[in-house]
Design a protein around this nucleic acid. Structure first.
Lengths: 198, 198
DNA sequence: CTCGCGATGTATCGGCGCGATACATCGCGC
DNA sequence: GCGCGATGTATCGCGCCGATACATCGCGAG
């Protein structure tokens, strides 16, 4: 299952939405891991999801809508909602912890829905991801240790930077895993800086 | 021009190679920025480059090869070499500093060939990249400042981690830019740790 | 000695994701 | 009244990816 389909299912799971709104929600929910999903991805995916029977069209805000339908917007907005099969499928996807959940993008998306993932699965995903990043880190160390002489200063610096990023992510994952094991939610005490002045 | 084509051109620029070898070289050169380019990407790209006249096939290690042709390997290895047009094109690509050179992947690949890029271009790319990452950082700060209440702890933590990565990259870029301006190559003094035990 | 297995090596196929592009309407301010 | 930015839906081509299929070579286990 593609990561985008998973994310859409997840958002639609907490209320109907039309494409444009969906895109914005995706941007804020996944802003940290992917640039922003474009319409060239969104609409075909919605089509696919609909064809698979996981979502359906719902005819524009049905209830809780007082008067004035003719002059506020009212255009070709297509509101999608998740179906029963969609919810079931989403549940299955939430529970899985395979190789794709360790991948860069896959991990990010699954992590974004961790609030609805059971703890055992969270731990398996976190550990799988850690393993993956550690392997990557070892690969970089290998290169840096064995091929450093043959490389120019810039290529070298790139590797160094990549290695540092790996090390940092492993530390982050370790912290999350420890938190997870001890039962408490992530980061009760946010780091004081890093939210400071713009 | 796709980033993969650029990278292949760059590697072939310093000597002929066959596909398999090319893949390994790419893995070490770009190991820090992309997983590893698969054959499903490599071979079609080589085809495209050849069709465009930027590379040609060269018939298996021509000279400096003593006896024993029949028993060492000798199979369908296809060695590619860059053409004159290919070199020219690569030079053009090296000199450009457009929006694609600020993108995640594009930036990484261009950075990997900075040793053959003139300083003015290096600076423009570095600054463009910094701007890009700063924008991304501001976006994340915005989200964190305005939508934090609506988000669960995990989504929040993801944003926080992403923001931190942005801040770190900006600092890194700033350092590189300063170095670049003062004329000396990057990182004369590598950080003592981060290469330690496996 | 032979058999299998991992490394070397080339290649294709389906499909996802992306950027560019095109349109249409709404509400706002100039 | 006119343009312009936000809202909104949609498509097309193509780059890139993972899975898969083959074929050969050298080496070590049995």
């Amino acid at each position: 299952m593609a990561t985008v389909e998973f994310a859409i299912l997840g958002l639609l799971h907490e209320g109907p939405m039309h494409g444009y709104e969906l895109r914005k929600q995706l941007a804020t929910k996944l802003g940290a891991i992917r640039a922003a999903i474009g319409y060239g991805t969104l609409y075909p995916t919605l089509r696919r999801l609909q064809a698979a029977g996981l979502i359906t069209e719902a005819g524009e805000t049905p209830a809780t809508d007082d008067a004035v339908p003719p002059l506020t917007s009212r255009r070709g907005r297509i509101v999608y909602k998740i179906t029963a099969e969609g919810k079931e499928r989403f549940g299955e996807l939430l529970a899985q912890a395979g190789p794709e959940t360790w991948e860069d993008t896959g991990f990010g998306v699954h992590f974004a829905f961790f609030a609805r993932t059971d703890r055992a699965t969270r731990l398996r995903i976190l550990e799988g991801r850690r393993r993956k990043v550690e392997e990557r880190r070892e690969g970089l160390r290998e290169i840096l240790a064995r091929a450093a002489e043959r490389m120019d200063a810039y290529t070298l610096e790139l590797q160094r930077h990549g290695l540092e990023a790996c090390e940092r992510e492993v530390r982050w994952l370790e912290e999350l895993i420890a938190n997870e094991r001890s039962g408490r939610p992530p980061r009760t005490t946010p780091p004081p800086e890093s939210l400071g002045r713009s």
